[in-house]
Amino acid sequence: MHSKPDKASWGLTLGAIGGLLFLHFPMFVIFLYSFTTDEATYSFPLPGFTTKWFGVAMGRQDLWDALMLSLQVASVATLAALVLGTLAAAAVYRSDFFGRDAISFLLVLPIALPGIVTGIALRSAIGSMEIPFSFWTIIIGHATFCVVVVYNNVLARFRRMSGTQIEASMDLGANSFQTFRYVVLPNIGTALLAGGMLAFALSFDEVIVTTFTAGQQSTLPIWIFSQLVRPRDRPVTNVVATIVILITFLPIFFAQKISAESSETEGGSK
């Protein structure tokens, strides 16, 4: 017997810890830098600590505008994704129709192809039809890649839900709408929540497609991108980056916890 199967070798453990550190260390660095007193460079060790940049950032109207735009876009895009994703998931779950795989493929395409493809494609369509850039052109772009997130979450839940519940509800005299309201909806509730939160985070953070569909409008990620290319307000950018991490952290964390836990209960019932 060469090794106990339940104990990881120290080399593997070290590799795993290394991978985890690599994944999370950079976030910590941004957090640290938002307190630096250094205005002109990214020097490390930090010359001193200050919280004044949070105040400076709070006073910037352009940042508030960008934040508001990002929040509005993310909310509307999430709403669109919830409706479209749930409908598609229900249709695919209900029946074994021809082209079912094609639908899944079509929905996954916007996230499987590089974002720039979606971006430039929408840009050429908008250009060809001479539609002016607006809030809605951003939404149209975001909805394409948010739908799949909701779709995946809801479809996975549908597949775990036993169909007999729906039949029982119908047998007991509930009509389709009542069945949806009292049986289906409570079952898929947390999946909608998880999918919705992920879609929100995805949209709130998105920069590639947005660059092509926003025109002159500036969402928060676009604002950060402009600072990346030509840094003007380094300390304020650090603060904004920290705030973006904080805004998206909780929704993502809870969404992940919901899906991790529900896949575990599935494993337990097998």
Binding site: L20, L23, H24, P26, M27, V29, I30, Y33, Y42, L198, A201, L202, F204, D205, E206, V207, P221, I224, F225, Q227, L228, T237, N238, A241, V244, I245, T248, F249, I252, F253, A255, Q256
Partner: peptide, 19 residues
């Protein structure tokens, strides 16, 4: 821990490396 960065801000994570 692995999937969190998958959804969290892409642009911010690029920015981190600039620092």
């Amino acid at each position: 821990a692995v999937t969190l960065p998958l959804w969290s801000s892409y642009i911010v994570r690029v920015y981190a490396w600039k620092l």
